[in-house]
Amino acid sequence: MPRPHRDSISTTLLDLVKARHSGAWQRLVDLYGGVVYRWCRQSGLKAEDAADVVQEVFLSVASHVAEFRRARPRDSFTAWLSTITRNKIRDCFRRQADRPQARGGTQAQQRLLEVSESDPSSALEEWPRAADIVDAERILTQRTVELVRLEFEPHTWEAWYKTAIEGRPAADVAADLGMSLHAVYKAKSRILLRLRQELASLHGETTNPSPLPPEEGSHQSPLPPGEG
């Protein structure tokens, strides 16, 4: 049982992570890890380097997550995460540039380097763009679906999938799966409810990192989180 909450806003995944609720951290990584990895790869990092940066990003999240405070409602965790990721990617590129035998570098890498050396407010600082965040939120939704799936019996899930995703009439699905009509309705309702909860838990917590390391604290106003 968590300590008495200060207010009645629903407990979110980030709250659970801060409370070090068992499994919450692993779930956070499960949810967001793929997105962070994708960002790294999109920036032009090689797979091995991307894996390293993912680890660094989550190390940073782990040591700062407790300092989160609710601030501007427009700030989303995803946007904050992208800021950390951006900084870690830049660090990684810098390290590579410092290596004597630095390899040629992709276009993206060149761009990032030039940008970071010259004007901090140009392209690199502007990443993530709105579209990147939207993409990330969509992947997160997908990932949430995959994780929620583990909580349900296969036939319940199938009934939900055929009705909610494929859009088939409940009666057909009931006949197909040999379930009662109501069981199909119930499956659809239950899983949609569960997904809404889970997505609300992701987006409900709007955070602003307060005492971040200087360079990580300066992120542009991110997009509002997707509708939960």
Binding site: Q26, G33, E48, A50, A51, D52, V54, Q55, L59, A62
Partner: peptide, 13 residues
């Protein structure tokens, strides 16, 4: 590498 990265991140801290 993505899978490996996630496994490491879970216990990285």
């Amino acid at each position: 590498q993505c899978e490996a990265a996630l496994a490491r991140a879970k216990y990285a801290a």
